[in-house]
Amino acid sequence: MISNMTKYSSECVLQCVPLQSPIGELQLSGCEKGVHSITITTDTPKHSAVSCADSDVQVELQKCVSWLQSYFSSAQSVTSLPSPAIHNPMLETDTFSACVLRTLQDQVPAGQTVSYKKLAKMAGNERAVRAVGGAMRRNPVPLLIPCHRVLCSSGAIGGFMGGKGADIKLWLLQHEGWKP
């Protein structure tokens, strides 16, 4: 089921697509340039799984659905796939948050984790641990930018989805082969 397209900016016409997954329903939003957001809902599913053979679905959203289906089938399978295009204004800036999210996406592969402190250092400011946490909270495309791979320095898994998704974070880490 595809929701009506909505105007996002002078350049983008957003389309929303629901996708069932092992962690709950995902709401994907994007335009012809890429994915704008992924929202994980833990509510009872309201839609059936999307079929991306539908010619009305934007090409980049079709790619994202295929990537996510592959990821949920086998997390390691996506290492050989190109990541879906992301088109979110937050990530198109030179802010520290955008730098942190790009660093995480580029340098922490499936099955590996990084501490908030180490990610701050990798992004160029080892004292900005709290800012890294803020960037994780504002991540518009979880799973594509794997904020679930960021742990506390103590090894604790830390928060996810505003504190209500610790079980989802643990599932994702275990799905990727993480060993505590």
Rank of each mutant, 00 (worst) to 15 (best):
N4A: 15
T6L: 12
K7V: 09
K7I: 10
S10Y: 08
V13E: 14
L14C: 13
L14V: 00
L14T: 00
L14H: 14
Q15K: 12
C16H: 15
V17D: 05
L19K: 06
P22S: 13
P22G: 11
I23V: 09
G24R: 01
G24D: 04
E25T: 12
E25K: 00
L26Q: 03
L26A: 08
S29N: 13
S29K: 15
G30Y: 08
E32I: 11
K33D: 15
K33E: 15
G34Y: 14
G34R: 06
G34C: 14
V35I: 08
I40L: 08
D43I: 00
K46C: 09
A49T: 13
V50Y: 03
C52A: 10
A53H: 14
D54H: 05
S55T: 05
S55F: 10
S55G: 06
D56E: 12
D56W: 04
V57C: 15
V57T: 11
V57G: 08
V57P: 00
V59E: 15
E60C: 07
Q62R: 15
K63G: 10
K63W: 08
C64Y: 10
S66D: 07
L68S: 06
Q69Y: 04
F72E: 02
F72G: 04
S74V: 00
A75H: 09
S80E: 14
L81D: 03
A85L: 15
A85Y: 13
N88T: 02
P89D: 09
P89L: 14
L91Y: 10
E92D: 12
E92H: 07
T93E: 06
T93A: 06
T95A: 03
T95V: 06
S97V: 05
A98V: 04
A98Q: 09
C99S: 08
C99M: 04
R102S: 14
L104V: 04
L104F: 14
L104Q: 09
Q105C: 11
Q105R: 10
Q107R: 07
Q112E: 05
T113N: 15
Y116K: 07
Y116Q: 14
K117F: 08
K118C: 05
K118T: 06
L119S: 05
M122S: 12
A123N: 09
G124I: 04
E126K: 12
R127T: 11
R127L: 12
A128I: 01
A128P: 03
V129Q: 04
V132T: 04
V132Q: 06
G134M: 02
A135R: 07
A135D: 04
R137C: 02
N139G: 04
V141E: 02
L143F: 10
L144F: 09
C147H: 03
C147Y: 03
H148V: 00
C152I: 13
S154R: 01
S154Y: 15
G155P: 02
A156H: 08
A156Q: 06
I157F: 09
G162F: 05
G162A: 05
K164L: 13
K169S: 07
K169C: 04
K169R: 07
K169V: 02
L173A: 12
E176V: 03
E176P: 01
W178C: 05
P180R: 10
